[in-house]
Measured scan of single mutants.
Amino acid sequence: MPVRRGHVAPQNTFLDTIIRKFEGQSRKFIIANARVENCAVIYCNDGFCELCGYSRAEVMQRPCTCDFLHGPRTQRRAAAQIAQALLGAEERKVEIAFYRKDGSCFLCLVDVVPVKNEDGAVIMFILNFEVVMEKDMVGSPAHDTNHRGPPTSWLAPGRAKTFRLKLPALLALTARESSVRSGGAGGAGAPGAVVVDVDLTPAAPSSESLALDEVTAMDNHVAGLGPAEERRALVGPGSPPRSAPGQLPSPRAHSLNPDASGSSCSLARTRSRESCASVRRASSADDIEAMRAGVLPPPPRHASTGAMHPLRSGLLNSTSDSDLVRYRTISKIPQITLNFVDLKGDPFLASPTSDREIIAPKIKERTHNVTEKVTQVLSLGADVLPEYKLQAPRIHRWTILHYSPFKAVWDWLILLLVIYTAVFTPYSAAFLLKETEEGPPATECGYACQPLAVVDLIVDIMFIVDILINFRTTYVNANEEVVSHPGRIAVHYFKGWFLIDMVAAIPFDLLI
């Protein structure tokens, strides 16, 4: 008679799926529990143990900040960024110097990925580790590398530091407007667009060049630039800015003055950032001319202004700041037409079709709590990747769950009947059967004279019903998954307890 339990259901295979997918890609990662103190490590794979030199037993239950890997060259700011990422709910990448158990130093890129439950609360953290440099290539500990984003994938490793954006290309926007319009339909740009040429040739750093990471940081200074100062900065030398009595002219307006920039070969870094931020506020060169004239017309309804409409929906549905990093990277690809469009465009503009998908598509409701890094690593669709929660398995109709209350009560009843059979069957065979043979035949009273025979008949009927119930009862397979398919249940029961239950259900007393 089957006594099969499996009270692990309803099970959740999400954690096993993450481990299996990460292991298949030869990654070095740990999984931490966000619900406990210090976000203790609950799993670390073999790749991480080989990377740091510690065994799994030495890593388990330690804080996922990996303070046991810190050393003299470990930056405090990087460690603080990892700790801050564990307090938030967004994906974050941090470069930090770690030390192995043998004392060797290596520069590592740590990717902190939160995993949320159905309520939107962070319950786990996945920390992925990628070695960037070994100890002989690690720089000085005073050099802070965590304020910069990861290198873009479309640049060669040897040319990542030679990417320079020439400031004269930004200063000569109005001069290039006529050349853009003359391109017409034969050019790649839309009317009114501004073409910015980027020099990728390796050259020595000069005062006129600005690194790509500095251009990325310009967006942080746009908020500090007032509207009046932006307007004066875009007017140009024809209309000098008016300053109040006793007030000095704005240095932001002076930063885009061609006369002032041409007199000296070098520009201050602050002026460069502010000038680029001011130019980015204009949607095209037409807006710059309109600002000089004193009238700013409404933005025209053409394809170039609607190019950012799908980007707005993608940004609203993005799951991490990696989408913004990807957008900034692609927006700086050289030799393309940049349409400086305000994100607050007309909502009635139709979304044009684009061959290049900048932001990841909208994630469906079932995966809105899973970050983009987890979705990318697992390579699963929205119909396959579940949320991290207890999910009731989908069972067929008329199927009994093996952990249901009805099955528990039924098993206790069958257990009592088995005990009765084990006690009274030998007793009936030894004593009652002998008395029946010696006594007179009682054929007239039937079952009324033999109450134990009636009980034995009921017990046999219950055993037959138990066999039928076992054909529709779920079970737990070797992978700790609840199986509810009727065919698989029948095959599993035939290979197991079916023969024993059938022999126990045969009414031998009635056959004798």
Rank of each mutant, 00 (worst) to 15 (best):
I18S: 01
V279F: 13
V3Q: 15
M133I: 12
A217C: 15
A34S: 13
P258A: 14
E274Q: 12
R4C: 14
N257W: 12
G24V: 06
P141E: 10
V3F: 13
V194N: 03
V115S: 03
R328W: 08
P241G: 12
E357Q: 07
M308P: 06
G120S: 07
H302Y: 07
A307K: 06
N257A: 06
Y54T: 01
Y54C: 01
K161P: 08
E23F: 01
A350K: 11
A203L: 06
A83V: 07
P251A: 10
H143Y: 14
R242A: 10
A217M: 05
V195K: 10
V112H: 01
T17R: 10
G139M: 14
P300T: 06
P298W: 04
V112S: 01
F348H: 15
N38Y: 06
N117A: 14
R73S: 14
T367A: 13
S322K: 11
P63S: 15
C265Q: 08
L109C: 05
T145H: 06
Y99Q: 01
Y43K: 01
V194R: 01
G6T: 13
H147C: 05
D199S: 01
H147V: 11
F163T: 15
A142S: 11
A382C: 12
S275E: 12
A223W: 05
S266T: 15
D102V: 01
G345Q: 08
S243R: 14
E23Q: 06
A204R: 15
S351L: 05
P300Q: 03
I363F: 05
A89I: 08
L171M: 15
V8K: 10
R326F: 03
L170N: 08
F48P: 01
N317D: 15
C66A: 03
T270I: 08
T13R: 13
Q81W: 05
P245V: 09
V377F: 06
N45T: 06
S313C: 14
S263L: 09
A307D: 14
I333C: 15
Q84Y: 03
G236V: 15
V132E: 07
C49P: 01
T375G: 08
G24M: 14
I336L: 10
S153C: 07
T319L: 05
G103L: 08
A285H: 10
L127G: 01
F48G: 01
G314R: 06
A32R: 01
R77P: 15
F22E: 13
V370N: 04
